[in-house]
Nucleic acid binder design. Sequence first.
DNA 1: TCTGGGGTCCTAGGACCC
DNA 2: TCTGGGGTCCTAGGACCC
Length: 420
Amino acid sequence: MSWGIVDVANFYVSAERLFDPALRKVPVIVLSNNDGCAIARSEEAKALHIKMGDPVFKLRDTIRKHGIQLRSSNYELYADLNRRFNEVLGEFSDVVEVYSIDESFYRAPVLANGLGDVAGAHRVREAIARSVGLPTRIGLGPTRTLSKVANALAKATEKVWGGVVDLHDTELRARLFAKWPVGEVWGIGRALEARLKPLGITTTADLAAMPPAVARDVGTVVLERLVRELGGVECDDFRPEPEALKATAVTRQFGEPVRDLDALREAMARRAWRAAEKIRAQGLVATRLIAFAHGSRYRPNPPNASRSARLSPATNDPRVIVGIAGRMVESMFEPGGVYTKCGILLEDLSAEGAPQGDLFASADPKAPELLATIDGLNARFGRDTITLAAQGRGARGFDTKRSQKSPSWTTNLAEIPIAR
DNA sequence: TCTGGGGTCCTAGGACCC
DNA sequence: TCTGGGGTCCTAGGACCC
């Protein structure tokens, strides 16, 4: 068994550059929702020491001094490009697991000499570059964990090894692991790194040499599996089908702080509506709802509250979900509080029709037809053509800021690029 | 003034059962 | 001096990922 993982280099920046040549060869950063932080940086921006998550207001001087180009996140564009590069990857492998918006695992062949198919990986990169226009790197290994480490090494050694690293060979592993910090390994975050350090485990080689039982003791079964996977033993089950979503969330910072109950209720209604729409699109219903609202954690004594409820029967009906969320807002709201964010989580999702009914409550029998009609109209005439009155109409100050958004080049006919 | 959003998995501990 | 033991289920919270 052999895995490859493809990741797109600086994905959001590369995506923006695809349709805007003015962004090439200059420093570019793509901002988080609400234009708050830098979440993607071009190589030129990284060279200026801009870090992942740096707040934009602290970068003002650097941005002006170096003429750094800013873009708001354009998730429609990124999602569409993700679909496209996975389509190309699918031409090379029967098994493609979409891991994140810019990374996918694929099953890759092992060659007769026991090594991974490096030449094949280069062909995948060339095909994605040619058909989609995105730069990628690929890691190969006998387990997902090893392919992820190989991918990280491929980034670090791109100039020397050309963007592909294969970790099937145990001697090469030993050589590279000795110099690779343990904190760079997939699955080792800050907390685990700090627990491993006093034990003298600072490199990937140290971690790989840990007896699995000790690993379990220091961490949990997760760390034990990680150690085994580093040794080439697959612990992660092979998943023939993409797994169903278990929970979903719609949470957003406000463009401007919210101080009154009506605005907070309306903002929550918009998020609740979107969450219900998301699970309907996947044919799911939720059994648990959590709503929260809070102020800035950078201010003293921010308001902070959450409420949860069971949904019985399980539902994806926005009238129910928005209604409950609205009552939760009323019970959470503190007069005088300055709110900066609210959101909703829908959990314990299951397929529509599958969950047990409720003996005492029953769903509106006409709901499926009504909701299908609403979703159909919104798909045809645009998002939010039909909404609930509780959401209010039109743009509001609390809506997320996206002042530098590029057009939806590939997903909206009105914004399609024009060539002369 | 201004600091993202959305997931998964695991464990400890409480409630409850016989 | 005496105090049961062993399960299951649920939730909150922590850790990790991109």
